[in-house]
């Protein structure tokens, strides 16, 4: 089953390069990856597989080609009729992460280290029990939890609040998902089960699916807590980045929004102009409030609109005969692609 999940990222009409898919899943944020990721409509999947093994992925893609689920074209790979069928089969029968975009906002590693500890500590707290074996957790998770607990004035309310939040949150999903999710946690007098053990009890879920469900629901729970006011928000906040942009890009983008030109931003930040342009392209791709007309002038628009028609993915810069710099061309391409998308 392993390799079939990659079929989800391919299309029956658009040729797609597997390397772009891999880089998006691993969160390798070059402007080129992001641009093509946007064209493939897979940007929601940024950072969903941060530890993806390059060699293994390439071998799996080769297997999909060998099985004739994917066909090689000059511009990349496209789904065959059998590939379309297999993709649908996969979607119908397999657990798929339902809100992948959350993986851009929350630091998955840090949260998944913390969540089992949070549940166990609050569970034991509700029994006033201090004598228990703490679930394996890195020191940084223990520190983060201790720091947060020190902010809590009345800890006696925590069990009720957390229980209620989990009930509300899990109530949004099929009941079985909630059962699987909670079976993976350890709490008072109750040791959790491994994915392997759960798959014996619920054979319609493979071990891989159970682990996906665990990641998916854990991340959605973090997002759920983050959107609410209150204590739990403070726990997640240090591991979240709602801007989607990397730190340096975010600074450049804020200055851009304050009406500084790319040149001025470069001078102020003591960075190369090319770096700032990359920051702005990344912002244009990832944000929906980008003000294109601050860079592309009225005259530029006239030239661009006269030169290019049809699907922006097919446009080529050389058609402009150097009348407009590449940066503006790419911005225009992003703007029009988004309008179509």
């Amino acid at each position: 089953m392993g390799e079939k999940k990659w079929l989800l990222f391919f299309s029956e009409t658009q040729s797609r390069r597997p390397i772009v898919i891999r880089q998006i899943l691993c969160n390798k944020r070059t402007v080129s990856n992001l641009y093509w990721g946007m064209q493939y409509h897979i940007l929601d999947w940024l950072n969903v597989e941060p530890t993806l093994d390059e060699k293994k992925f390439d071998l799996q893609i080769n297997k999909l080609i060998k099985n004739k689920y994917l066909l090689a074209t000059p511009k990349g790979l496209v789904l065959t009729a059998e590939g379309i069928f297999q993709k649908k089969e996969y979607l119908d029968n397999t657990y798929v992460i339902s809100k992948p975009y959350i993986f851009q906002y929350i630091n998955e590693k840090r949260w998944l280290e913390l969540l089992p500890l949070l549940i166990q500590v609050i569970s034991e707290l509700s029994y006033h029990n201090k004598k228990y074996y703490v679930v394996n957790s890195p020191l940084r998770a223990q520190f983060a939890l201790k720091k947060w607990l020190s902010l809590v004035k009345d800890r006696s309310e925590l069990p009720q609040v957390l229980k209620q939040k989990l009930l509300t949150f899990l109530g949004e999903f099929p009941h079985e998902y909630g059962n699987i999710f909670m079976a993976l946690f350890t709490g008072h007098a109750n040791i959790g089960q491994t994915a392997e053990q759960i798959t014996v009890l619920i054979p319609q879920f493979s071990k891989e699916e159970i682990l996906l469900l665990w990641r998916d629901l854990s991340m959605q729970f973090a997002f759920f807590l983050l959107k609410e006011d209150g204590l739990f928000r403070q726990l997640i906040a240090p591991f979240s980045n709602l801007s989607q942009l990397s730190k340096s890009t975010e600074i450049s983008y804020q200055l851009f929004k304050e009406n500084l030109t790319a040149n001025k931003i470069a001078t102020q930040r003591n960075l190369k102009i090319s770096t700032i342009k990359e920051h702005l392209l990344e912002s244009a791709i990832l944000r929906n409030d980008f003000s294109y007309s601050k860079i592309i002038t009225h005259d530029d628009y006239s030239i661009l609109m006269n030169t290019f028609k049809g699907n922006p993915i097919d446009w080529e810069y050389r058609q402009l005969d150097n009348k407009i710099e590449f940066f503006k061309f790419r911005l225009f391409q992003i703007e029009r692609s988004k309008n179509i998308g």
Binding site: S123, K163, N179, M182, F185, G187, H188, Q193
Partner: peptide, 19 residues
């Protein structure tokens, strides 16, 4: 003997002792 996954609402009741 664990032969089925418990109902999550039951697990939450066991995990969090509330008044």
């Amino acid at each position: 003997i664990i032969n089925q996954v418990s109902d999550y609402e039951d697990i939450l009741d066991i995990f969090f002792k509330t008044l």
